[in-house]
Amino acid sequence: MTTTVMVVDLDELCQSVNLPRDVLVEIVEVGIVEPREQRAGHWVFDYQAVSVVRRAVRLRREFELDWPGIALALRLLDEVDELRAENRYLRQRLARLLED
């Protein structure tokens, strides 16, 4: 039986995304990911952070953005996703109320 692990620490995150520690610290400082807690002085992240950082790394490589630019792009992309989801939901609601 497999178990789900809910959090990763900074070292695990570095290993998962193949980045040195100081780069990850920079990524945290610009707010791309936030540690969910500081356990005994070291950062612990929600494991969703791995996907976020990986996405950030791809954006950096593919678009040659700097980290603050990536932080902005990610926030706007998230917003677009939220708006898309909301739009989908509202359209669905409208269809249910208007159509037979």
Binding site: M1, T2, V5, V50, A85
Partner: peptide
């Protein structure tokens, strides 16, 4: 065989180490 936690939401990720 993966256990789907109660309350799993859309867009969430499940990590299998």
């Amino acid at each position: 065989n993966v256990k789907i936690p109660v309350g799993t939401a859309d867009g969430e990720r499940i990590r299998l180490k």
